[in-house]
Design a binder for these strands. Structure first.
Ligand SMILES: [Mn+2]
Ligand SMILES: [Mn+2]
Ligand SMILES: [Zn+2]
Ligand SMILES: [Zn+2]
Lengths: 157, 157
DNA sequence: TCCTTATTAGGAACCATTCCTAATTAGCAG
DNA sequence: CTGCTAATTAGGAATGGTTCCTAATAAGGA
């Protein structure tokens, strides 16, 4: 189901959000992406059509949509944030070579029980499984990574 | 099993790592912590005994221990890195109020099958479940957070 | 004991993100 | 349609965690 810009404007009004060209364009790119883009990725993709767009607006927009529940940050590590507008419950596979993130929708993962051994007053609201490994083109962990592994510290993990 | 400083020095030699007072102290604090501390947390805890310690050394040490497989970064988001020296397979519960991280060792979580729908050539090497919610003292998501929620952007999620 | 190389400390640099501010604009009421 | 008001935007500065760079130090092996 491909949402048009009009569909998105409609959705924004349903959610009580103001509809602006920038906001619509950003969400439009994000919802039709499966790449879990960064703020800068989105900025790069929306910029051609909105030359005055500022990266700050992308961050602000993502935080507004996040608060509204239309966008989630993907939990992949402490590096830069990746965003996801796919609200159906799902999990992720992260390639440790190229950092690509693939959706996983195995229904067996959606019925994990609340874990044992928690404090009684802890209330769990969600959970997510993060699989890690190497995609076909990134095998042999130390070679052929798309982004050249610079850095003075030894690579951890 | 509480490891003494001597035990740790022994372990380092087993792993082919040089044993220095700073490195030993950092690992000693980390392995006896259940708090998944940040680099700065470790720096603060080790500093009294090693006044000349630099934060840089903490980062360097963590990266060396990470490469050796003695320490793992905990996957809790894109903010600052948290570290864990608990190598037994386990998962985490993160309080979205105070950001505390609790270990979960439910064996039911340690036998999740490889998810369906993956590219055939993707090789999964590990996975982790991240539960999120609110601890007893952080209920009512918008109130009583330990760290006051400053920031101009609306809080996402 | 001496050598070689890793480690350390300290400072600067980096960069993703947030903060600050003034101008613009969307949505609403009249 | 017109004007009001608060949200949104753009741009620039600031922040802060992490990494980079360098010279001095110290660990482990010969
Ligand atoms: Mn996803
Ligand atoms: Mn842990
Ligand atoms: Zn890959
Ligand atoms: Zn809490």
């Amino acid at each position: 189901m491909k949402l048009s810009l009009e569909d998105i404007q409609h959705k924004f009004r349903e959610y009580g959000l103001k509809s602006t060209p920038q906001r619509t364009a950003i969400y439009h790119v994000l919802i039709h992406s499966t790449a879990h883009p960064t703020a800068e990725d989105l900025f790069a993709q929306v910029s051609p059509a909105h030359p005055m767009l500022s990266l700050n607006t992308v961050y602000y927009t993502l935080s507004v949509l996040g608060t509204a529940g239309l966008v989630r940050e993907v939990n992949v590590g402490h590096d830069r944030a990746r965003y996801d507008a796919n609200l159906t419950p799902h999990h992720h596979v992260i390639c440790q070579g190229c950092q690509n993130i693939i959706d996983v929708m195995d229904p067996r993962l959606d019925c994990l029980a609340s874990p044992s051994g928690l404090p009684h007053d802890f209330e769990i609201t969600s959970y997510q499984v993060a699989f890690r490994g190497y995609c076909g083109t990134c095998r042999q962990p130390q070679a052929s990574t798309t982004t050249s592994p610079t850095g003075n510290y030894p690579a951890s993990s």
